[in-house]
Design a protein around this nucleic acid. Structure first.
Length: 531
RNA sequence: GGCGGCAUGGCCAAGUGGUUAAGGCGACGGUCUGCAAAAUCGUUACCCCCGGUUCGACUCCGGGUGCCGCCUCCA
């Protein structure tokens, strides 16, 4: 597999277009992902930024690459310190707490562990060493225990964000309070002298701590070398974070070093605007996974190309008439359509996330198909003669990977699932029109193909029956549905149907429908699910 | 103000210089069903506007309009 790889295209922010991935060492890929600053719970945007490289890593491994995946944790930072001081705890303890939460949340979403997960606090000597060499090279200067990067002396500054020094200077003067001790407003801190109530480390410039950007330069070269393949992160990191990383790393290690490709994911938008902690319009991943299966969230994030914005919508229907409430009405609680007034608590329980509902239904469809396929295989006899499976199924893996090879186009790839799944459902329902061998082989092949898809995507890999059951039960728990009671009614209904007492059967079905439960009657009994 | 991105059916969303412009949701009609549901079959787009390049553009170039982002912490 590793001998002849098909080209993988990716969009590189630096060159501004799609290029073919040519790894530094053939067959190997080094990826550095800017992980979170751990001062709060992970929000959906952070999660997307972790899921995107996760799929890249899975896919490149599937393509036969040996991948070294490094994702850092920024555990020393202004906001961590501020928050810790507010809470009256050690910054380190606060950081650790949110690191645990981060790990927990990501594991839920079936994220692979990175091969290395470096922390700033554990790379102090490398950071100091890097700053020292920048000082020695004349690219940095110390003032009163602070050390700043001398941006002007790094010629290519602005290459990633496609901005010139002049443009940047115009903005800088007007929008930030300029520290008079800096030679230029653009200069940024590599090292910050200790202030009261702050953790600090000894350095040649006195006690202090690293500035925000230096850690990624230091940790990436420590774990991937001065030059490596892919550096990824959210779009908002392009400037200044990644621009500054380039200045630091190339400043110290020379032109042509550092990341060869820059991959940046788009934002999650909420109400059409960027979801962010500073705007306060964010949802933590945990809030969402309490309502929906984590795999649903993962699937949802992958339905759209990673570079695009992903709109996260919220709907609040009126509990009385079902009309969707506008933002003002959500706050007042009064429905303009029917005049019904609801308390905030009631409305909160009614909140729906249409994108996730769709994703959940789709995932259920896929798992139901898979469950059906497995059941078929378990019961059917393997035909003696071999015949090829239906084309849509036999070509699925290739069609799917082709999309991922094209800048990790998960949205396009997911679209390739429809036809084969659809045809398999047809075969499951009836063997009309095809030979037994084709039917069997097609169903057998879809199970196998979906296994490969699962390896690439990190979705669809669970036990179908278990997933379906868990989804049903967790949703039941969420809305306070008594499953035993549902089962009881269902049993009564089955009895009524056997007795051909349609009126009673329909009455029970109506009753269940009031609870949001639907029934499906099949040749061998009835099952229930959510409407 | 500077820089960057986006604009595809009712909604979401892939994609291509010229064949039938994926897929999902929704809607409508059929099959199945005691009736339903689920599943399945069928129907549902000429790609923001104006110029240009081209034999031919939704796809390339220029302009316009609109939305979003970055320029300050941010995934």
């Amino acid at each position: 597999m590793s001998e002849t790889k098909q080209p993988v295209l990716l969009h590189d922010t630096l060159s501004g277009g799609k290029t073919e991935l040519q790894t530094l060492i053939p067959g190997q890929v080094g990826i550095y992902c800017c992980g979170p600053t751990v001062y709060g719970l992970t929000h959906l945007g952070n999660t997307r930024a972790a899921v995107v490289p996760d799929v890249m890593v899975r896919f490149l491994r599937h393509e036969g690459y040996e991948v070294k995946y490094v994702r850092n944790l920024t555990d020393i930072d202004d906001k961590i310190i501020a928050r810790a001081n507010e809470e009256g705890v050690e910054a380190k303890d606060l950081a650790n707490r949110f690191i645990d939460a981060y790990h927990h949340d990501l594991a839920d979403l079936n994220l692979l562990d990175p091969d290395v997960e470096p922390r700033v606090s554990e790379h102090m000597s490398q950071i100091i060493e890097l700053i020292e060499s920048l000082v020695t090279l004349g690219l940095a200067y110390a003032v009163d225990g602070d050390v700043y990067y001398r941006v002007r002396s790094f010629g290519p500054y602005g290459q990633l964000s496609h901005r010139s020094l002049d443009e940047l200077l115009e903005g800088a003067g007007s929008r930030i309070d300029v520290d008079e001790r800096k030679e230029s407003p653009l200069d940024f801190a590599l090292w910050k002298a200790v202030k009261p109530d702050e953790p600090s480390w000894e350095s040649p410039w006195g006690a202090g701590r690293p500035g925000w950007h230096i850690e990624c330069s230091a940790m990436s070269s420590t774990h991937l070398g001065d030059t490596f393949d892919i550096h990824c992160g959210g779009r908002d990191l392009i400037f200044p974070h990644h621009e500054n990383e380039i200045a630091q790393s190339q400043g110290a290690h020379g032109q042509g070093t550092f990341a060869r490709y820059w991959v940046h994911n788009g934002f999650i938008n909420f109400d059409g605007e960027k979801m962010s902690k500073s705007l306060g319009n964010f949802f933590t991943t945990r809030q969402i996974t309490e309502l929906y299966d984590p795999e649903t969230v993962r699937y949802f994030l992958l339905t759209v190309h990673y570079r695009s914005g992903l709109n996260f919508e919220l709907e609040v229907p009126c509990p009385s008439c079902g009309a969707l409430l506008a933002k003002e009405d959500q706050e007042s609680g009064k429905c303009p359509a029917c005049g019904h007034e609801s308390s905030p608590e009631v409305l909160k329980q009614r909140v729906r996330f249409p994108g996730l509902e769709d994703a959940d239904d789709r995932l259920a469809y896929i798992y139901r198909t898979l469950a059906g396929a497995r059941a078929f295989l378990a019961n059917a006899k393997r035909p003696g003669n071999e015949e090829p499976p239906l084309e849509s199924v036999s070509s699925l893996v290739e069609a799917f990977s082709a999309h991922l090879r094209n800048d990790f186009n998960t949205g396009g790839a997911l679209g390739e699932l429809s036809k084969p799944l659809n045809e398999v459902n047809g075969l499951l329902a009836s063997g009309k029109g095809v030979s037994k061998a084709v039917r069997y082989r097609t169903i057998e092949t879809i199970v196998q193909a979906m296994g490969e898809v699962a390896a690439m995507l990190g979705c669809f890999g669970q036990e179908p029956e278990a997933w379906l059951l868990r989804r049903r039960d967790s949703k039941a728990a969420r809305i306070g549905l008594d499953v035993a009671q549902v089962e009881e009614l269902l049993a009564q209904r089955i009895a009524a149907r056997v007795a051909k007492d349609w009126a009673a059967a329909d009455r029970i079905r109506d009753e269940l429908a009031k609870w949001g439960v639907g029934v499906q009657d099949g040749p061998d009994g009835s099952v229930w699910s959510f409407l």
